[in-house]
Amino acid sequence: GMDVRRLKVNELREELQRRGLDTRGLKAELAERLQAALSGPSSG
């Protein structure tokens, strides 16, 4: 899988935006949010 901790802030935001998620917050928050999205149930 993707290691969200290795991504830069702008990369985290890009991935979040692609999934329609909130791109605001600290890098740690963005990484946590993206990780949750990646490990969560895949819809679609």
Rank of each mutant, 00 (worst) to 15 (best):
L38H: 03
G44L: 12
L21M: 07
E29F: 03
E14S: 11
M2R: 10
L38Q: 04
A28T: 09
D3T: 07
E32W: 10
L26Q: 11
R5N: 14
S42Y: 09
R5F: 14
L7P: 02
L34D: 00
M2G: 07
R6W: 10
R5K: 13
G20I: 01
M2A: 07
S43W: 11
G1A: 14
D3A: 08
V4G: 04
M2W: 11
D22I: 04
S43Q: 13
S39P: 05
T23E: 04
M2P: 09
M2E: 06
P41Y: 12
A28P: 07
Q35F: 11
E29R: 04
E32M: 12
L30D: 00
Q35H: 10
G40V: 11
K27E: 06
Q17R: 15
E32V: 10
A36V: 08
K27S: 04
D22W: 02
E15P: 00
E14R: 15
R13L: 06
A36D: 08
E32I: 10
Q35G: 06
A31Y: 08
T23G: 05
M2T: 08
V9R: 06
T23K: 05
P41W: 12
A31R: 14
L34H: 01
L30A: 01
L12P: 00
L26P: 14
G44V: 12
R5W: 15
R5I: 07
R6D: 09
L7A: 04
E15R: 05
L16T: 01
A37H: 09
A31T: 07
S43R: 09
S42H: 12
R33S: 01
E32H: 11
R18Y: 04
A36G: 06
P41G: 13
L21A: 03
Q35V: 10
L34P: 00
V4Y: 06
L38M: 09
R13F: 05
A36H: 09
R24P: 02
M2Y: 10
R19Q: 04
R13W: 04
S39L: 13
R18Q: 06
R5E: 09
G20H: 06
A36L: 10
N10E: 15
E29G: 03
K8R: 11
E15S: 03
D3K: 08
A28G: 08
G44I: 12
A36R: 13
N10T: 13
L26T: 15
L34W: 02
A31F: 09
K8Y: 05
P41Q: 13
L21Y: 05
R19K: 04
S43P: 13
T23A: 07
G1R: 09
G25P: 00
L7V: 02
D3F: 08
R13I: 11
L38S: 04
L16G: 00
S39D: 14
D3H: 09
L30V: 01
L26D: 15
M2S: 07
G20W: 02
L12H: 00
K8A: 10
T23I: 09
G44E: 11
G1P: 14
G40T: 11
K8E: 12
P41A: 14
S39T: 12
R13M: 06
E15A: 09
G1N: 12
R24K: 10
G40S: 11
N10L: 07
G20F: 04
L30Q: 01
Q35S: 10
E11Q: 14
E15M: 08
M2L: 15
R24G: 08
G20V: 00
R18P: 00
D22M: 04
Q17S: 11
E29H: 06
G25F: 02
R24T: 13
A37F: 11
A37E: 05
R13H: 03
E15H: 06
S39M: 14
G25H: 02
